[in-house]
Design a binder for these strands. Structure first.
Length: 423
RNA sequence: GGAGAGGUGGCUGAGUGGUUGAAAGCGGCGGUCUUGAAAACCGUUAUUCCGAGCGAUCGGGAUCUAGAGUUCAAAUCUCUACCUCUCCGCCA
């Protein structure tokens, strides 16, 4: 959520920043009109309430002195009646303003290239694609022939675009998770969190998934709970409605969760294999930081996610997303794409974003120093470190051999009983 | 699932209709004392909105889980939701 004051005071800049994102038409003028009207009414209401408080004191004074409070009570009745008219008017206005604000996306950072996704900027490319003296297979061919993933039975027991990992597939998934969590907690300074996979509406709103993207979420009807699309939601909301101590910042959490996405509207895209599934595993990194450090922290966060790919020996590139490709809440975002040789495609395996104070304002997460200054919103960041399904696809394709087996990347071997290949 | 109890400031905990943003204690912060610390003593101690001012600040409003209601007036009464605890049942 943007700061209403910021919109009020930097009307033009906000407007042009939103235009840069594209696709969002926000009527700033009518928002400002509503805001002005609200403040006018609020001043009036506060004056009435002041009168009411005075009248109330007078009544209790009368009662104490055993005088007749009747005339005072009548006066107060009158004031209360006026308040009764104004209050709902303001409440309605408040709700309207809130609802508009909740649907305005974050403003892109100055360094973000302006334009549609073609303007995404490749920041760096790391590692070399493997070369083979045979035609490399796709991960779904490999997974099928090694019986690592059961696509058919997954759709039987649940539905299409769900997967069942089996045998070596399941072991590899587990090894990857443990490797990533160990890396971030033991070497990058993150505290491990294992949150619930279902959250309430307030949490989904706090991080920005609601109200705009409700149709993309799995919802538990009876309880009004949502299956998390990413660990970002429960982990960021851990500190919802809290005032953190400045000396505790930055707070860095790493969490494994399954992630659930309906992928509504993306039918027909990437339907084969592991690229777009409704449930996948992910290790997520979440940070709460001081505003002046958030961009420095973003670079570190990207580095931590990259380290995973480097250690796994996967070639990858880092993209800085253009304004038109930014997610709703992000001010700046880097995508990490691992190269998968079988598909000959770059697969997005991580998205590292700085949300600045956008989520913190929605979720009411502040910090306060010892100097007695007013609490201010923290900056929140998160990044995948990294998403599993696509990473597994890249590993299967890049580490395949002519005889159909998979060489296990060095760093994973301790997690797979020291074995050096699968299949 | 059944029965009951309860949700007050960072914490413990008073407060059952009218100067209660809220006693007291603890904790925190500042100070006196001390070589330093502890103890003792003194002071201070939430968040948020509107308005005025360049600003330190000042004036006012709101907030006792949330929402609705009763009333001239609600932390206090009623209802609903959420959450917590206890007992019973069920259960990985």
């Amino acid at each position: 959520m943007l700061d209403l004051k910021l919109i009020r005071e930097h009307n033009k800049a906000v407007r042009s920043a939103l235009v840069a994102r594209g696709g969002y038409t926000v009527d700033i003028d009518s928002l400002m009109d509503m805001d002005q009207k609200r403040r006018k009414l609020l001043t009036k209401l506060d004056e009435l309430r002041e009168k009411k408080n005075i009248a109330n004191d007078e009544i209790s004074q009368c009662l104490k002195e055993k005088k007749d409070p009747k005339p005072k009570i009548d006066a107060m009745k009158d004031i209360s009646a006026q308040i009764g008219i104004l209050e709902p008017e303001i409440k309605t206005l408040d709700a309207e303003i809130e609802s508009i604000l909740m649907r305005i996306p974050n403003l892109p950072h100055i360094s973000v290239p302006v334009g549609s996704p073609e303007k995404n900027k490749e920041v760096r490319r790391v590692g070399e694609a493997p070369t083979f003296d045979f035609k490399p297979k796709t991960h779904f061919e490999i997974a099928e022939s090694l019986d690592m993933i059961d696509f058919k039975r997954a759709s039987k027991i649940t539905g299409s675009n769900f997967i069942v990992y089996k045998g070596a597939g399941a072991r590899l998934e587990r090894a990857l998770l443990n490797f990533m969590l160990d890396l971030h907690t033991q070497h990058h300074g993150y505290l491990e969190i294992f949150p619930p996979f279902l959250v309430n509406r307030a949490s989904m709103t706090g991080t920005g998934q609601l109200p705009k993207m409700e149709e993309d979420m799995y919802r538990v009807q009876d309880e009004d709970l949502f299956l998390i699309p990413t660990a970002e939601v429960p982990v960021t909301n851990l500190h919802r409605d809290e005032i953190l101590k400045e000396e505790d910042l930055p707070i860095c959490y790493a969490a494994y969760t399954a992630c659930f996405r309906r992928e509504a509207g993306s039918y027909g895209k990437d339907t084969r294999g592991l690229l777009r599934v409704h449930q996948f595993d992910k290790v997520e990194l979440v940070k709460f930081v001081k505003p002046e450090e958030s961009y420095e922290e973003l670079e570190k966060l990207v580095g931590h996610a990259e380290k995973v790919l480097q250690l796994l020996g996967l070639p990858y590139r880092v993209l800085m997303l253009a304004t038109g490709d930014l997610s709703f809440a992000a001010a700046k975002c880097y995508d990490l794409e691992a190269y998968a040789v079988g598909l000959d495609k770059w697969l997005e395996v991580s998205s590292c974003s700085n949300f600045e104070d956008f989520q913190a304002r929605r979720a009411n997460i502040k910090f306060k120093g010892k100097d007695g200054a007013k609490p201010a919103c923290v900056h929140t960041l998160n990044g995948s470190g990294v998403a599993l399904a696509r990473t597994m696809a890249a590993i299967l394709e890049n580490y395949q051999t002519k005889d159909g087996t998979i060489v296990i990347p060095q760093v994973l071997r301790p997690y797979l009983a020291g074995e050096d290949h699968l299949g």
